[in-house]
Amino acid sequence: MPRTPLPLRRAAFPALVCLALVLTGCSSGAADGSGASTRSDTRERAGSEESGSKSTVGTGRSGGSRSAPAVPVRIDIPSLGIDSELMRLGLNPDGTVEVPPAEKGMTAGWYTGGAVPGEPGAAVVIGHNDTRFGKAVFHDLRKIGKGADIAIHNDRGAELHFRVTATETVSKKAFPTEKVYGPTNARTLRLITCDGAFDDQGHPVDNLIVYANRS
């Protein structure tokens, strides 16, 4: 797992955190049973058990003024039997991106630094694969197929639908930051979780990314 900043040398991307690198909490439990990485001291101060490496990413937004949009509150993936509330995830005091705490592994989270689902830009939803408590909300995400429906429910009662266009498993050392977080005028959704083999600390070495567009 990268422990140092991974800068994206593009002026269009403000200095935030590489969200994909926060998913170190997915664990086989073979290391210390905590489901967390070796940076747990920092995360405990931040009020979260898990966090990640700093980097430079974009917000995924297309820019321009926006009146207050609706807030996403639930994600539903019928083909996988996933139906979860959505936490709001921001930044920890140390500048790392929040992830759902291990004890809420069955709850996904919407990263508020990206776009609002249904608005122009790339919206990002994070979910654990596994935690020390067992299987988590996105454990079966690798089974999702192209064309699968993903529904996002917001706090105004609307139900927004997205269709999966592609999936990709990538090394956490070579995460496609611009592809995932880059500005776009399309109304897109990205789901991210851990995937792949485990390293010697019991953490998956890859991320699974699901790409979807508003249908």
Rank of each mutant, 00 (worst) to 15 (best):
E159L: 10
I209N: 01
T193V: 13
P14K: 14
L19M: 09
R43G: 03
A123C: 04
L8M: 05
P2V: 03
P120H: 00
F162Q: 11
I144H: 04
A46S: 15
P78T: 06
L89M: 10
V205N: 10
R142S: 13
N207G: 09
R10F: 06
G29M: 09
E50M: 12
E178W: 08
T4D: 11
V116I: 14
L80I: 02
G121A: 09
G90P: 06
P204T: 10
R88A: 14
G114Y: 10
L189A: 03
S84P: 06
G182Q: 02
N154W: 02
K172L: 14
T24A: 13
S65A: 04
T107G: 03
S34H: 02
T131M: 08
A68T: 15
P93E: 04
N154Q: 03
S34L: 02
S48G: 00
M106S: 05
E50L: 15
D83M: 04
E44Y: 14
L6C: 10
K135Y: 02
P204K: 10
G147Q: 01
A31D: 13
A30M: 11
D140F: 02
G121H: 06
P14L: 11
D149R: 09
L21T: 15
G157K: 15
A108Y: 05
E50W: 02
E85P: 04
G47P: 00
P120F: 05
S28K: 01
A31S: 14
D149M: 12
W110P: 00
G63H: 14
L89K: 08
L16T: 15
A70T: 11
G95M: 12
G196T: 15
A115R: 03
S27E: 12
T42Q: 08
T193C: 08
R187Q: 14
